[in-house]
């Protein structure tokens, strides 16, 4: 059950329709965390193969679960 007000729903939807990209602009420290639902486990490797995710927001803001298309034997949790 939700009660909500003041959401500016129409404006936001118009914006997303025009731009067509998912996710909120809350983390933009690195490009692989900006559109988390489009990025996958390997997205961060395009910045460098030895990288580990180290941005604080990546602790809470998970990458996309669409990894079923990625050929890999890496265990994901």
């Amino acid at each position: 059950m939700y009660s909500s007000s003041n959401l500016h729903e129409q404006t936001k939807n118009d914006f997303v329709k025009t731009v067509g990209l998912p996710d909120l602009a809350i983390s933009n420290g690195a490009n692989f965390i900006r559109h988390r639902s489009l990025s996958d486990t390997f997205s961060l490797f395009s910045n460098g193969p030895e990288l580990l995710e180290y941005f604080p927001s990546t602790f809470t803001y998970n990458y996309s679960q669409n990894y079923k298309n990625i050929p890999s034997r890496i265990e994901l949790e």
């Binding site: 809350i26 933009n28 803001y61």
Partner: peptide, 12 residues
Amino acid sequence: KEIFIGYSRLKP
């Protein structure tokens, strides 16, 4: 809220 935003410089 910093937990969710991280330390990205461009805070909304």
